[in-house]
Design a protein around this nucleic acid. Sequence first.
DNA 1: AGGTTCGCCTGCGGGC
DNA 2: TGCCCGCAGGCGAACC
Length: 271
Amino acid sequence: MPELPEVETTRRGLAPHLVGHTLNDVVVRQRQLRWPVPKAVEQAIGHPLEALERRAKWLVFRTPPGALLMHLGMSGSMRVFLDSAPAPARHDHVDLVFDDQRLMRFNDPRRFGALLWAPGDPLAHPLLARLGPEPLEDGFDGDWLWRQSRGRRAAVKAFIMDPGVVVGVGNIYAAEALFAAGVHPQRAAGRIGLPRYRRLAEAIREVLARAIRAGGTTLRDFTVADGSPGYFSQELAVYGRHGEPCPRCGQALKRRTIAQRGTVYCVRCQR
DNA sequence: AGGTTCGCCTGCGGGC
DNA sequence: TGCCCGCAGGCGAACC
């Protein structure tokens, strides 16, 4: 399930092959993704790809008249073909066809992904405009989390997964960061002090950065496999490991549902 | 307005 | 072996 590190890894893999090339066609085989793929995506045709950026888990394909916005959802993946592409396979929903025989293919079995068109400034698009800070950039730190959390009674796990608070923290890395920081996922966000939020912010940055580094070395080509539980499962301390001993204290890891999501944590190390 | 639940999908693991 | 069921999950929308 692509989280921020997977999306960033995808971006880094795709960009060198596509940026600067002109988009010759957008082939949509399956229009019913998370939202119907709008006809307006054709407005990108005939224009060069100026930049491939990431905002939260969105990939932003910038062209002069606007941007294509792509989301991998739960099960999406991208692949680039540099000369002749094979016949599309099951769940190959969209091709971005570039000059020089280049083709980017979007595959998404569960169709939770998206392809949208943002005319003008993509960051002003309704889905992007109200997002919180990027966790790996300036503007995100423990002080920010602390200020945002005052008066919030929801579980801290739900709080850090709220895209208005900070983007790109999905279920896997929320669990990992909370474990690394020693914070119990169920604790009310408003009842955690500044020092612990500083630790938590640092943990969020660290787990995401480490996963991106791992992605850079793990993925040999620009193919991003449909990873179930992420491509970095060897690196995960608690996610998917309930019943196993806590890597810090040896106590069996617990699993319960918090904020409608399966959550693994250590009852002894996380308070 | 914060908080919670729903629903979109397919693949897969477990039970029988 | 094969079928069925339930669950998983990002996240916007709808609800309370």
